[in-house]
Write a protein that binds this DNA or RNA. Structure first.
Lengths: 118, 118
DNA sequence: GCTTTGTTTAACTTGCCGGTTGAATATGGG
DNA sequence: CCCATATTCAACCGGCAAGTTAAACAAAGC
């Protein structure tokens, strides 16, 4: 099961969930064990485990067991197809990484939807 | 209702549906009336109408009535936020528009899932 | 070998999503 | 005014996705 080229369906629906995006953002900083990934969230560990499975199925992360803990690491290539697809629509100006930084800061605190605290 | 900044939730879940992506690809070539958008699909007009509503809510298209037909046009800016978000994960090489072209050709014919003909 | 720690599986509930059909609401044309 | 065209609304249905809890499985440690 080499996780053959995941579909845009899988990738975009994986990204559609704020919890999963938050997880990706966390993994961007460092590889993490499942339990540690789950820590900041208010939902059950099982739920997070499922989210991780979804991300893995979409090719966005990889989970590899070492000892009894399972390490989750980002798989940046997984996003490439989707990124290519999207950019075709916009001819966007080259992306400013600072924008991304800011974006993360804005979107990380609220991992439960879209209601921002004004 | 100025369609205030749509959320990543809305954008990504809009993109997660193959029918909706196909619609976007169609609109990339030209603005279209709702009926014409619906034509190539095998589902009801009402269903397509809903899909269009979802895309509009996500800020990916705009629908403006002129006479009795409603024109759907792409709103490329709508993708920018999502694109910025995604690229932060990859530092992707500059996107090749030919890649996009090929991608479209591959993904357009099958607007019902992921089974590609090998 | 038993217990603890880490993670997944199973069974179940709930709510949303994508589709249907049929009626309702414009708008334009004879 | 009446009819046809264009689009949405409303009510409904089936399925799946996301969450829960409790049990199972795996690996380490004593």
């Amino acid at each position: 099961m080499p996780a053959q080229q995941p579909s845009l369906d899988a990738i975009f629906s994986a990204l559609a969930d704020p919890t999963r995006r938050a997880i990706l953002a966390m993994l961007l900083e460092d590889d993490m064990a499942v339990t540690d990934v789950a820590a900041p969230f208010e939902m059950s560990l099982a739920a997070i485990s499922k989210h991780l499975a979804v991300l893995a199925a979409a090719g966005l992360i990889r989970q590899e067991r070492r000892g009894r803990i399972i390490w989750c690491k980002l798989e940046p290539d997984g996003l490439r197809n989707a990124s290519v697809w999207m950019q075709g629509f916009g001819q966007f100006e080259p992306v400013d990484l600072d924008d991304f930084e800011r974006f993360l800061r804005e979107s990380l605190p609220l991992m439960d939807g879209d209601d921002a605290k004004p």
